[in-house]
Computed example of a mutant assay.
Amino acid sequence: MTLEILTPEKKIYSGTVYGVQLPGIDGLFEVLNKHAPLVSALSKGNLKILKDKTSFETYTIQSGFVEVLDNKVTVLVEGAVLV
């Protein structure tokens, strides 16, 4: 699946990933390949990009939103910093 992380200033990440873990307002959740369509609010916390089954990158994000549609995950956040 494809992941894009966007802030008002720039694109932080774009690429093909295995999955992504997100800090939802009601708790942590994970999106994997072929996930059902979804729109959710995000809280401040850590976003983990699962590049494959063994490697990952982590970003600290500010609040925002995520949209999952047609095997593409778009994350819109106020700010993101690579940990």
Rank of each mutant, 00 (worst) to 15 (best):
D52I: 12
K53G: 05
L22T: 01
G15E: 08
G27D: 12
E78T: 13
L47S: 05
G79R: 14
G15L: 06
F65M: 09
V75P: 07
M1A: 12
K10A: 11
G24V: 00
A36H: 10
G45M: 10
V73T: 06
V77R: 02
S55C: 08
Q21A: 14
G45F: 05
T16R: 11
D70I: 09
A80C: 12
A41M: 10
K72G: 05
E78Q: 15
P37I: 06
P23I: 13
G45E: 08
K44A: 14
E57M: 11
L28T: 15
E9K: 11
Q21V: 15
T60R: 10
G19P: 13
Y13G: 02
K10I: 15
T74A: 00
L3I: 11
G27S: 06
A80D: 09
V83A: 15
K11Y: 04
L28G: 06
L50I: 11
I25T: 14
V73A: 04
E4F: 02
D26H: 13
N71V: 00
H35A: 02
P8I: 10
K10V: 15
T54Q: 13
T54F: 09
V66P: 05
P37D: 03
F56L: 15
K34S: 06
K10F: 04
G64Y: 01
N71M: 03
S43V: 14
Y59E: 04
L47A: 09
Y13E: 09
V77A: 04
K44T: 15
V31F: 00
I61K: 02
E9N: 07
Y13R: 09
Q62H: 08
I49H: 05
I12Q: 06
F65T: 01
V77C: 08
P23N: 10
V81C: 06
I5G: 08
P8C: 06
G64W: 00
V83P: 12
L38H: 07
S43H: 12
G15D: 03
N33A: 12
L47Y: 01
E67N: 07
P37M: 02
V31W: 00
G45K: 13
E9G: 08
D70W: 03
M1V: 13
T60C: 09
E67G: 04
E4V: 08
V81S: 15
V66A: 02
V73W: 02
T16E: 14
G24D: 01
S43D: 15
L38Y: 12
A36S: 10
L76E: 03
H35N: 00
G24Y: 01
D52Q: 05
L50G: 02
K53R: 11
N71A: 01
N33E: 12
G27Q: 03
K51M: 13
H35F: 09
V39G: 00
V75N: 00
K72Y: 10
K44F: 11
